[in-house]
Amino acid sequence: MLHCLNTSGNLAGGEETTISDMTVLQRQKARINFQQFSSSQQFMMVACDSALGEVVANSIKPDPSFGKDTVKKRKAEINNNNSNNSKVDVIVPECDKRIKVSADEEESKTSDQISKGHKNTKANNGTKNNRENSGDTNSKEKLDYIHVRARRGQATDSHSLAERVRREKISERMKYLQDLVPGCNKIAGKAGMLDEIINYVQSLQRQVEFLSMKLAAVNPRLDFNIDELFTKEVFPQNFPTIGMQSDMTNPTYLQFNSSQQLVSSCGGLINNMGIIPPEIGLRRNINIPAASSLPEIFDSSCFTHILPSSSWEGDFQNLHSMDFDQGRSMCFPSQPFTGMVEASNLKMEM
């Protein structure tokens, strides 16, 4: 890297003194950024050319062991050269600005580091250690979020940066939560949103409680015939025509993935018969779990009965399904309310 830079300097400069001056700059650059790719050399050189006059005027002592020095040696030299130091520090950010035009994230990082180094040289010895520490933590943070930059008037130390990032993260998550929790969209304040979220979580927990109570009440034994339900659900996959009825009596199971195939097969069958489009089956799935009113169960039962015993009369079935569908869609809006009433009853009981 260094050699490459030097050779380029050689090509461009020609004169011995200018080369040495350029290498001072280049080496400092290299010290800061080892991973920089060679394409940025052009920018460097442009910057150096513009800065050359100044540096030469300052008369840096020419480098005797050019090209053979290690980076550390060079660094020490730069640090020792106190009169030069400020000048160099001023110049380097300039070339970095130019590099930034090439829009690479690494370079913006280096520019930050350079500015930090600049502060270091100007700061007292006491604060120097602090600065270096903060720089370390900052570089660690930057691995996660490089793009965070302070706007005008905002604090730039690592703590406030981290705090800002944290707050942004939280607000982003809160937005997701807003989407997830119903009725949370209209509330602006954080406290109100938290209130809503708390209420929602509580209601969900209560619902779980209530449902488990209901299950316990409905089933005298603990396993509440799940096996039978499952056998009814699983076996018909091989015999879709038989399975239709049993499956419709437990329509809730249609929602699970294992029975997706069954649904599709049923749908396919139905389609083949030309009776009902599969959407109706899907709609049934959505509706029936919440259904508690008697006529609906009645409806579904007669429907289920008709399907397996159908005498393959397409028109009749179509008519019936249409009626059925309409009735269902009519019934649908009222269902959430009944659910709510149940929930409130539960609360009263609890």
Binding site: L204, Q207, V208, L211, S212, K214, L215, V218, N219, F224, N225, E228, L229, T249, N250, P251, T252, Y253, Q255, I288, P289, A290, A291, S292, I297, F298, S300, S301, C302, T304, H305, I306, S309, H320
Partner: peptide
């Protein structure tokens, strides 16, 4: 969880009190 439990509740209710299926039009 709530959805699954609700499904199970309705399923078991339907299972225990099976709907009348003798109704033929």
């Amino acid at each position: 969880q709530v959805e699954v439990m609700r499904c199970l509740v309705t399923a078991s209710e339907l299972f225990i009190n099976p709907p009348i299926i003798d109704f033929i039009i």
